[in-house]
């Protein structure tokens, strides 16, 4: 009887398997931040973003670029450094319940990755199409590029690499080696950022207009396919979670 009471107490004191507040706060963080960014584009895109030689362009857009790049490097260093430094060195000896709890945390990261990919690859990338069909570019660092390439892409890269590092440092499932599709799903979309070099090189040489289906853009397409590798991660996770639950769920 006493033992049962102790067990119930321990259960009550135990951390929940999934911290739902983190999921909600994470989703809201991206939503609120990107809503603010979209407001900023709306106001300062038209009033200060049309002529890159104007002083107000330097004030409102180039300074935005310098600040975001600095913050991204800092955030990536601190976050990735923390996840690595605080890694579990006895990861193969954790209890099944702790493993399940970590899978929930891992999925919190993956939810954020999917959400960040949406904002980067869908929202701000197609937005770039309409901006450059409207405005004739006179620089590589246009308002839509400063947000799309140098803000939304680094954010999903930081999120994706964090998810991968979390899995690699805390989950027994990923200790066998390197999960091929996990790497594809993180490194592929990451490669879209270096591909910006090709894009800007081409636009500098060939045309200031916009044709979204131009072969110059196919590098983005190729690396965008890598998002499908999330299916390989899902399959691995489903197998692991099924093994952990060991229950007939029908």
């Amino acid at each position: 009887m006493a033992a049962t009471t102790e067990s119930v107490k321990a259960d009550a004191a135990e951390a929940p398997l999934l911290n739902r507040r983190n999921v909600v706060l994470g989703l809201l963080l991206y939503l609120v931040f990107y809503s603010w960014v979209r407001w900023y584009e709306g106001v300062y895109g038209w009033s200060a973003g049309l002529d890159s030689f104007a002083p107000e362009f330097e004030t409102y857009w180039m300074n935005f670029l310098y600040i975001e790049l600095t913050l991204e490097v800092l955030t990536a260093s601190v976050l990735w450094g923390y996840i690595w430094k605080s890694r579990d060195r006895k990861v193969m000896s954790i209890t099944p319940r702790e493993e399940l709890r970590r899978h929930f945390t891992h999925w919190t990261w993956l939810v954020m990755y999917g959400w960040a990919i949406y904002w980067g690859a869908s929202y701000f990338t197609e937005q770039d199409g309409t901006w450059h069909q409207t405005i004739v570019r006179d620089t590589d660092f246009t308002p839509s590029h400063i947000i799309e390439f140098y803000l939304s892409y680094p954010i999903y890269i930081i999120t994706g690499v964090s998810a991968f590092l979390y899995a690699k440092t805390r989950l027994p499932t990923y200790q066998e080696g390197l999960h091929l599709m996990y790497m594809v799903s993180v490194i592929g979309p990451f490669m879209i950022l270096p591909n910006v070099g090709l894009n800007e090189w081409g636009h500098t040489f060939w045309f200031m207009e916009e044709l979204f289906v131009a072969p110059l853009h196919y590098g983005f397409v190729f690396f965008g396919w890598a998002a499908l590798a999330i299916m390989g991660v899902v399959n691995t996770e489903v197998m692991t979670i099924t093994r952990l639950l060991k229950k007939d769920l029908a």
């Binding site: 999917g114 990919i117 690859a121 990338t125 879209i192 965008g224 998002a227 899902v234």
Partner: peptide, 29 residues
């Protein structure tokens, strides 16, 4: 709970990859 988290992630990751593919291969049309 995992079902919902998986579906959310799959939906938005596919959305991102599919959208960047489609807008840059057939987008102008």
């Amino acid at each position: 709970t995992f079902d919902w988290m998986i579906l959310f992630t799959l939906f938005f990751a596919v959305l991102g990859g599919y959208h960047i593919h489609y807008m840059l291969t057939g987008g102008d049309w």
